[in-house]
Computed example of a mutant assay.
Amino acid sequence: MSEVFDGRLFSEVFITLFVIMDPPGIVPIFLGLTAAMTGKQRNRAARQAILVSFGVIVSFAIFGQQLLSYMHISMAALQASGGLLLLLIAMELLTGKSEEPAPSGNKGVNVAMVPLGTPLLAGPGAIVAIMVFVQSSDKSTSDWVSIALAAVAVHVSLWLAMRFSGVIRRVLRDSGTILFTRIAGLLLAAIAVQLVADAVRAFIETS
């Protein structure tokens, strides 16, 4: 089983994406964006948002290497920039600035795609994170399977959070949601610092 699945890599990718994409934290934003929708429309919006987010993540996971090569960007540079970006997102989670949904700017836009699917779910943090994991892997079958399953698992968690958003909101209440978001921000900050530290070490070793 270990030849086709790496449990450690799976857990690393899952935890990182889970913290960044924050399924419990997306509940109040999802409810706010879909307040005028019926139950069926809200469920359809959840499915559409997940499909858009997953498509964006997979696209960058597959074509991220070609993009980096074309732009002559090193792995260490990607890790450093990704760490700094994730640190900014962590600060927003810790200070509560991420809790207000971004305005769509156009009432004709499908909120399930924009801003929910992207950039709220498949935002810069998640994109950089998945690219870093793909680039740092040895491209073996077990690594690809582990990363893919982790991405699927996170999106299933996101769909469940949005599908049962009303129940989760009643259970966690506002205080519980805020507490979970703050803890997620703390964990994400630690992940960001580790990414920057690894990038600095790589720069030193290659200099």
Rank of each mutant, 00 (worst) to 15 (best):
D174H: 09
L87F: 15
M75Y: 05
I191G: 07
M131N: 03
L85Q: 12
E3Y: 05
I57K: 00
L93E: 04
K107A: 14
V145A: 10
V58C: 00
G166T: 13
S137C: 06
S140N: 05
L78M: 12
P23C: 04
M91Q: 13
P124Y: 10
S165I: 02
S207N: 14
G55H: 00
W159V: 08
L9Y: 00
R173Q: 13
Q135M: 13
T34A: 12
Y70C: 06
G176R: 01
R170I: 13
P23M: 05
R163E: 09
L85W: 05
L93W: 00
V171E: 04
V167G: 00
V56I: 14
P119L: 04
V132E: 01
S207T: 15
V132Q: 01
E99H: 09
I73T: 01
A102Q: 15
I191R: 08
A151S: 10
M91S: 11
I62M: 11
T206E: 14
F164P: 00
F164W: 13
I20G: 11
A184H: 02
A45S: 13
E92D: 14
P115D: 10
R47L: 11
L116R: 02
L121R: 01
A184M: 12
D6V: 00
Q194I: 07
L160E: 07
A49K: 02
P23F: 01
T141D: 09
I178Q: 11
N106L: 13
S104M: 13
L179R: 10
A102T: 15
R201E: 10
M91R: 15
V167A: 12
I50E: 00
S137I: 08
G83P: 05
I130S: 06
V52P: 01
A61Y: 09
V19S: 11
V58I: 12
A202P: 02
V167S: 06
F14G: 06
L179G: 07
P119R: 04
V19D: 03
I50W: 00
I178L: 14
A76Y: 07
P24D: 12
L120H: 03
V145H: 05
T95I: 11
R201P: 00
A151P: 00
L188G: 09
G125Y: 06
Q48S: 08
G55W: 02
R182E: 12
T141Q: 10
G125K: 05
S104W: 03
L33F: 10
T181C: 06
I20E: 08
Q194V: 07
S81N: 14
K107T: 14
T177Y: 03
L84H: 10
S59V: 14
K139Q: 12
I130N: 04
M21P: 03
A80D: 08
A199M: 09
G96P: 11
S59L: 15
R47A: 11
S69C: 05
L172S: 01
A36D: 12
G82E: 04
I183D: 08
V154A: 02
A148T: 13
A197R: 11
A80G: 08
A80I: 15
L172H: 01
Q79E: 13
N106R: 11
I204V: 14
M21H: 05
L93H: 06
F180I: 15
G39D: 15
I57L: 15
V156A: 10
S142W: 00
A129Q: 10
I57F: 01
V52F: 03
L116Y: 06
A153N: 02
R42H: 08
T16N: 10
F14C: 09
A36E: 13
D174F: 09
F180K: 04
N43V: 10
A49M: 06
A77H: 05
V132C: 09
S59N: 03
P124K: 09
